[in-house]
Amino acid sequence: MGASEGLTEWVRRASQGQASAYSELYRRTRPLVTRLVGGFAQLDADEVEDVIQETFVRAFRALPRLKEPGAFESWLLSIARNRARTRLERKSSTRRLEEDVADPEPEPVPHIPEALQLERDIAVVRRLIAELPEGEEKRTVHLFYVEGELSAREIAEKLGVGKSAVTMRLERFRSRIKRELLRRVLAGRWE
C-alpha cells in the first residue's frame, strides 16, 4: 500500500484551512515524494531538496481547488515528477527555461476509477518485475522499488555504474508499468 491511507480526511481539513492538516499531509507524504525525486540520480542533494520544497509549495497553493481529495497522493506525485523533470531539463539545457512541464490542474482531476483502484494491487507489478530477465535492470528495479532503501545515486555507487544509467533503467521499467496501467484503464474504464 502507498501512503495514501487516511490522507483524504487530512486533505479535506487542509482545504478548509486547518494549518495542522498541512503539517500532517507534509509528514505523511514527504517520504514518498523524497523517494520519487531520489529516482533522478542526476539531481544532487540540494536539488532534490529544492524539488521537494517546490512540489509542496505548488501542491499546497492549489490544494483548495482540488475537487477530489482521494486523488491527492497521485496529484502530488505527478507534480513532484514534473518538477524533477523540469529541474533536470533545465540542468541539462535541453529545453528553454520557459518550456516548463506544466503541473496537472487540480480542477479536472477525476476520481480514481475503480478499475484503477484494482490495479493498485501490487501483484501486477510484482509479476512484471519477476518477468524481467535477470540482469542489471532487474537488480536496479529491485533495489529502488522493492527494497526501497537506496536512492538512485546510492544504487549507482553500489552497482558501480553511472548515475544516468540507473535513472534510465528505472524510467524504462516505469514506462512499461505505465503502458500496462494505461491499457488496463482503457480496457476497464473507458471502453
Binding site: 500500500m1 502507498g2 501512503a3 495514501s4 514518498l32 523517494r35 520519487l36 486523488a71 497522493e73 497521485s74 496529484w75 502530488l76 506525485l77 505527478s78 507534480i79 513532484a80 515528477r81 514534473n82 523533470r85 512541464v101 506544466a102 496537472p104 482531476v109 477525476p110 480514481i112 484503477l116 490495479e119 493498485r120 501490487i122 507489478v125 510484482r126 522499488y145 522493492v146 527494497e147 526501497g148 532503501e149 524510467e171 524504462r172 516505469r174 514506462s175 508499468i177 505505465k178 503502458r179 496501467l181 494505461l182 484503464v185
Partner: peptide, 24 residues
C-alpha cells in the same frame, strides 16, 4: 510515455503504485 506526462494523473498513479512496493 516515459517522456510525456499524462494522460490525467496516470503518472502519479504509476508512481504511487511503484513506491508502494517497498515495505513501510
Amino acid at each position: 510515455l516515459a517522456t510525456h506526462p499524462g494522460p490525467g494523473l496516470l503518472d502519479g498513479q504509476v508512481d504511487s503504485l511503484l513506491l508502494g512496493l517497498a515495505p513501510t
